[in-house]
Design a protein around this nucleic acid. Structure first.
Lengths: 222, 222
DNA sequence: AATAAAATTTAGACAAATCTAAAAAAATAT
DNA sequence: ATATTTTTTTAGATTTGTCTAAATTTTATT
């Protein structure tokens, strides 16, 4: 048996899911620009997705994924992120060069394959960009992992890893009372030099450079 | 950039390549039955492949791949077999359950990806069915690896591995003067019990059971 | 509330890959 | 050598996903 839904349909579901997550609501034009296509093409596809019972849609009134559509979207996202993880961790690609390949790999249909891949990779919780990987049942693990440069302002997080393991950076972090497990949040980001002001509970604010921020990884609940 | 050729075109090239290998010559009907489609569809595609300069084709006169078509076909075969190897060796699938998945994976376009996968797998020379894997330049390595049940009659080969590592089988093989590196050929296959008669140079013929044959792997030049 | 602007949908077209039914060419048999 | 059968090709239709241009609906503006 071939895939249940075409790559194109899967891409629409994924795009709608993402837009729904970010904006709460989705419009035809949003989807068109996200997918680099024309609004008319989006309308055409909305009708098909509705006919397939993946989408609630009333013309001119808006649309959103139903339970089944969300389920399918989550499976695509799962595949995309697991393949990215594979490409980075096993094939040693840079995290910035894997997206395109994962866009193709995410449409490989076998669920058994992706579950075995998950197992082979040790059931990772986040992909190389820190985005969470849904499990086999489509459940999110809520924890995201990012470096400090990418931690949203005012988001409580916990230090989970240090990139550069040199004695120098460890000394610096030690001095600023930053260690594995430290809870902190970013208070300000300075565009001028990408330096960052952090707040650790019961301490006065500290500033760290872009170079340091890039090497401190934190996790937080999404 | 997306794939250079559609999955469908790639499948036609692959099918034509295989039929060319086996029969020397290929007909429209052959391709149709290999691809589970209609002769009319094959003709349609032949015209497209000719227009794309992958095929030499004169209507009613027959057709065959040109250099470029052969090159593309070999790359697909390379991808198919490397993914099969990955599925069996890394994801622990059985060799009999990987074909369908590899049929999809072989159309992932990135050459860099497949070359990294090749490296990750340690540049295997044959896939789990013993078929040779073309290298990055599309060159065959001539050696095939199969178990004795699948070794063609009268084909010289060299013992390259033993599946079951029990003391019992090693004792039996030792008794029959079969060890790693032994050169032999199959003289007869008995359909009744799938037992096999072997000839080792300077020795009288020996017979082994199906059970033993299944556990003796040999390699030979194709 | 009427009008202008923006968003969305429809109508009709096109390309890719496939199909059926019929025609044409080649191979085979008498 | 002619007739029959088989193979191959054409003609025209279908499906999926896309497009442009025009029409419609909704939203924003005065």
């Amino acid at each position: 048996m071939g895939p249940k839904y075409s790559s194109s349909r899967e891409n629409y579901l994924k795009a709608i899911f993402h837009l729904q997550e970010v904006h709460g609501t989705v419009t035809t034009n949003d989807v068109a620009s996200e997918m680099q296509t024309r609004p008319a093409s989006v309308t055409d596809m909305l009708k098909k997705l509705k006919a397939q019972k993946l989408l609630l849609y009333e013309k001119y009134k808006g649309f959103k994924l139903n339970t089944e559509g969300r389920k399918v979207a989550l499976q695509i996202i799962r595949k995309h992120r697991l393949w990215e993880y594979f490409l980075v961790e096993k094939l040693r690609f840079g995290w910035d060069e894997v997206h395109e390949m994962a866009e193709e790999l995410e449409h490989i249909s076998s669920k058994k394959l992706i579950d075995r891949l998950d197992e082979f990779l040790g059931f990772p919780k986040t992909d190389p960009h820190g985005d969470p990987i849904p499990d086999s049942q489509g459940r999110w693990t809520l924890t995201r992992q990012v470096d400090l440069l990418n931690l949203p302002v005012n988001q409580q997080a916990e230090v989970s890893g240090i990139g550069d393991q040199s004695a120098e950076i460890l000394e610096l972090l030690n001095h600023k009372h930053i260690a594995l497990g430290t809870r902190l949040e970013v208070k300000k980001k300075f565009a001028f030099d990408n330096s960052i002001e952090l707040k650790i509970k019961n301490q006065s604010p500290v500033t760290i450079s872009e170079h340091v921020a890039k090497n401190v990884f934190v996790k937080y609940d999404d």
